[in-house]
Design a protein around this nucleic acid. Sequence first.
DNA 1: AAGTTTGTAACTTTAATTGTTACGTGGTGG
DNA 2: CCACCACGTAACAATTAAAGTTACAAACTT
Lengths: 169, 169
Amino acid sequence: MRQDHRLSRVLHVLIHLDRHRPHATSDEIAMMLRTNPVVVRRTLGGLKKSGLVSSEKGHGGGWQLARDLADITLRDIYNALGEPPLFAIGNADEQPRCLVEQAVNDAIDDTLDLARTLMMDRFASITLADIAADFDHRLKDYPEEARRFGHIRDDDAVKEDRQEGSKAG
Amino acid sequence: MRQDHRLSRVLHVLIHLDRHRPHATSDEIAMMLRTNPVVVRRTLGGLKKSGLVSSEKGHGGGWQLARDLADITLRDIYNALGEPPLFAIGNADEQPRCLVEQAVNDAIDDTLDLARTLMMDRFASITLADIAADFDHRLKDYPEEARRFGHIRDDDAVKEDRQEGSKAG
DNA sequence: AAGTTTGTAACTTTAATTGTTACGTGGTGG
DNA sequence: CCACCACGTAACAATTAAAGTTACAAACTT
């Protein structure tokens, strides 16, 4: 089954956006994520409706964080993405007539519901500020690579990544 | 993301197999699951390697449970299926250079690991006998539909389901 | 008015499960 | 021993959802 990477990508982008000059364009963000600007607009467009980011058109436009990192939990982002399916496994038929299958479905659903609750609670307990703080710790341990880590903070780093085709995104 | 329904289907089949005459053929099982006999052979073939079922060719052949229901946990079956992916979400890049993305990945992986452990522990604690017992309780509450529930126990019920195109699976 | 950037529709690509066809292999029974 | 049955498996098609791409409209800046 093909995985949904939107949550991971959005977390990555929003933390970078926090320390970025007023706006980052879809093109810049797309380069960082090694993807397409349309994918960026599509994904961030959803977050805009939830008030997590804002966008502006024209010269000097682009995307900007609309809230403080400490005010955004992973759960907020998951919800803003439309609460996409969490599990790659599931029941063959959710409304079966067969009582055996009903018992099977209940056993599986109970487990999935427990796991979903755990994940949602945990997502709700983690803010983007927490992840950014973790990043700061990593930065302290590897100062020599520091310039790389702010790779959408200056255009040079972005261009360099693009030329290299590196995985630094 | 398209879901994997093999676990659900296998549980359903194995419980029916428990009370079935010596062998059930791939065709009979396929009718019950409303799918194709090749899919049945493919799926049950994997379980055979783990010693959960056995198969015989020729007249009177088919599939049979190789262990007691009480000796088979959902975890056993999940493992026998090759431990397919559990989650529909994941990280865009599992080995990123960017320290921000590393921090993001760790936050998500921590949550997924916790959920995976919860699910595996729970699967390990549920046997097919538990689900069969749940089925028996349901049967008590709805005795008038009882004939339907053993739908691979006699060929008539199977044929009926086939003609109706019902969801009794 | 020109250029930049988001917004969005429509289509293609990709990857995974599931479904299907076809044929080989082995076992049963008359 | 021969017809038949059922599993075993390779090869390919269908289905589905995310992600990528192209094209263009709309809005904003200078």
